[in-house]
Design a protein around this nucleic acid. Structure first.
Length: 642
RNA sequence: GCCCAUGUAGCUCAGGCGGUAGAGCACAUCCUUGGUAAGGAUGAGGUCACCGGUUCGAAUCCGGUCGUGGGCUCCA
């Protein structure tokens, strides 16, 4: 009498079961391996618990740790276990929210006294006990009134507040329990706590309730968890690798840059070696811009406050700007952006459609107020140099211009060694200015350019700036992390505010499109990204010292000096280590300094006009004629290859 | 800005429940002239972030300030 139901699997296969079978039962029927890996299921697009009984034909999928959704279930359940431990250890704790994140999970608590990192060990111990107990996660659905009564009784004011939201949205109200722990939760969850085979709590941090600063500050605990100890191990190794590449650490070790207490937070000092790398980046950048139809401009660092009033920055950007200051009774402002300056250049005379598009580029240094707590090495600073440009073009030209800019950006980023990019298109937000037709035109040109470039992209609906849609490009670094570099943005606001015009073929004035773009982002941040990407071992064309000459004994210093002269003559940057130290020491130090080439010189080499070449990170030695060795490096230098 | 942590020689760090500090590396001088990741000796170097309080006495305890790190928020 049991009814039969049909389940359609992701591969299109259809299986038949008796109605009332659980999702876990289906997994079991498909295979024992899958049943073991199963964390939850998706029925008709809805994630559900494995214990869910199925009673109608549906699409069906088992979630495992291999899928994003599966991991989210895993981490979400881990957050519940952590919350259970915290509630057991700190009786006054009130629960806020505990979602899965990119990698791992967190839970926010309102606690009578602050947590320190030392508390994490205690919480971990308790979690281990809870996991060993292998308690099942149980789901129950409640009416709004019942749930409200339950959480009021449990003294969980934040849950009551969330409940109001859930109720408002008309969602089913579900509550999960494991052991004595109760939480308002959409689910789904793991079958039981024992599925969490490995976990680690990582950090405590402050966070505001609902992320709003006026609200009470909660204490957030971050953690990660995995179904396998090996995966946790791998995660920890990845963290170590990231720490090893940290640009702040390498910046100090390699003497590239510093941030100084006496100098002020977020203000970067470029030391000679870092400055040399920046010089290389800037030269390349300028040359390529000139080759690609840009003109270079320069603008001042301060301007009358009136300019910033007209541009609207004093309205919509005030919180990022430093206070104005007085010069002979006139208020002036340190620049947080370059755009108004390029616009002033544009407005200095009348322009014809025949001149367009105008592409004006500047490595423009700007200053923005960032709250002390957010400063971070080179990644987040208060003074930085944007690789900025503004394109003024006619409506008919924008598609081509965007396509060009996109190609140019991808070309530049690839030259710096980034092969994989991720591209995002952000469209019109709810609150925005400008003509609907212009937005449509701008967005379609961005789409067309992306399609023409044959690159994949994701659309971020409504994430554009209020003044125009944009494309952002993120690079993927050597250890798989994403960093946003390029941004290409339309700006309808400034074109309007400054009443930009050009004279068209019809003799009438027209409004040009204004496109703002930074390809590397800022030189400071990009430098930080490069340091981490290369782990400090820069490719030959960027390396501050490309070759170090290492004579084995003092008596060969003279020959070594001549070798260095020849390197210089070939346009290579070299260093001569003529200290009375053993070759072992010299090599060790050259390796630690991550210098790409070592020329070791002994009596044999001096005799034959040769050098022994050793490359950074490789042990092989190659004895070659000096001229050949130099020619080889020169060609590598030109090719911008490692 | 807020929460947590943290600030000892140029760097990396020990120590210190109150009696003016120590190592390794780096630096200087000397010895050593040695073929692929640290040769040896000697020496110099610190108002223990800064300001204030408690105390006979503070680097150590307390308060504040500044910096740094991890978050929150925002973004290049």
């Amino acid at each position: 009498m049991a009814q039969r139901i049909k389940l359609t699997l992701p591969d299109g296969k259809v299986l038949e079961f008796a109605s009332g079978i659980t999702a876990a039962g289906v997994a079991e029927a498909i295979g024992a391996g899958l049943a073991r890996a199963a964390l939850a299921a998706v029925v008709d697009g809805r994630a559900v618990d494995l214990s869910t009984e199925l009673d109608h034909d549906a699409s069906f999928e088992i979630l495992t740790f291999d899928s994003r959704a599966g991991r989210e279930v895993f981490w979400h359940s881990s957050a519940h276990v952590m919350a259970q431990a915290v509630k057991a250890l700190y009786p006054g704790a009130k629960l806020a929210i505990g979602p899965p994140i990119e990698e791992g999970f967190y839970y926010d608590f309102d606690l009578p006294s602050p947590l320190t990192e030392d508390d994490l060990g205690r919480i971990e111990e308790r979690m281990k006990q809870l996991i060993a107990a292998d308690t099942t996660f149980e789901r129950r659905e409640y009416s709004a009134a019942e749930a409200r009564e339950l959480f009021t009784r449990e003294h969980e004011p934040y849950k009551v507040e969330i409940l109001a939201q859930v109720e408002h949205e008309g969602e089913t109200i579900s509550v999960y329990t494991q052991g004595g722990f109760i939480d308002l939760c959409r689910g789904p969850h793991l079958p039981s706590t024992g599925r969490i085979k490995a976990f680690k709590l990582l950090a405590v941090a402050g966070a505001y309730w609902k992320d709003a600063e006026g609200n009470p500050q909660l204490q957030r605990i971050y953690g990660v968890s995995y179904p396998d100890k090996k995966l946790l191990q791998e995660f920890l190794v990845r963290r170590e690798e990231a720490a090893r590449r940290d640009h702040r650490k390498l910046g100090k070790e390699l003497d590239l840059f510093s941030l100084q207490e006496e100098g002020g937070g977020g203000l970067v000092f470029w030391h000679p070696k870092g400055a040399l790398i920046r010089h290389q980046i800037e030269n390349f950048w300028r040359e390529e811009h000139l080759k690609n139809g840009y003109d270079l401009v320069y603008s001042p660092h301060i301007a009358r406050l009136n300019l910033w009033n007209r541009s609207g920055h004093t309205d919509f950007y005030a919180e990022s700007m430093y206070p104005p200051f007085d010069i002979e009774g006139n208020p002036y402002q340190l620049k947080p952006m370059n755009c108004p300056f390029h616009i002033l250049i544009y407005k200095s005379r009348l322009h014809s459609y025949r001149e367009l598009p105008l592409r004006w580029a500047e490595l423009g240094t700007v200053y923005r107020y960032e709250r002390s707590g957010v400063l971070h090495g080179l990644m987040r600073v208060r003074g930085f140099t944007q690789d900025d440009a503004h394109i003024f073009c006619a409506k008919e030209e924008i598609e081509r211009e965007i396509a060009r800019t996109l190609d140019f950006s991808l070309y530049l980023l690839r030259a710096f060694g980034f092969q994989q990019m991720k591209i995002y298109l952000s469209t019109r937000p709810a609150k925005s200015i400008g003509e609907e037709a212009d937005w449509v035109k701008a967005e379609s040109s961005l789409r067309a350019a992306l399609t023409a470039a044959g690159v994949e992209y994701a659309i971020d609906e409504g994430a554009g700036a209020f003044y125009g849609p944009k494309i952002d490009i993120c690079v993927r670094d050597a250890i798989g992390r994403e960093w946003q570099c390029t941004t290409i943005q339309f700006d309808f606001n400034l074109a309007e505010r400054f009443d930009l015009t050009y004279v068209g073929a019809d003799g009438n004035r027209h409004r040009p499109f204004l496109v703002h773009r930074a390809l590397l982002g800022s030189l400071e941040r990009f430098f930080g990204i490069l340091i981490e990407h290369y782990a400090g071992a820069f490719p030959v064309w960027l390396a501050p010292v490309q070759v170090v000459v290492l004579p084995i004994v003092d008596s060969l210093n003279e020959y070594a000096g001549r070798v260095q002269q020849q390197l210089a003559a070939a346009g290579l940057r070299s260093q001569l280590d003529e200290r009375s130290e053993k070759i072992n020491l010299k090599i060790r130090e050259a390796e630690l300094a991550k210098i790409p080439y070592m020329f070791v010189i002994g009596a044999r080499e001096a005799e034959a006009g040769q050098v022994t070449v050793r490359r950074h990170g490789r042990k092989e030695q190659k004895v070659v004629d000096l001229a050949e060795a130099i020619a080889d490096i020169v060609s590598t230098d030109r090719q911008k290859e490692q």
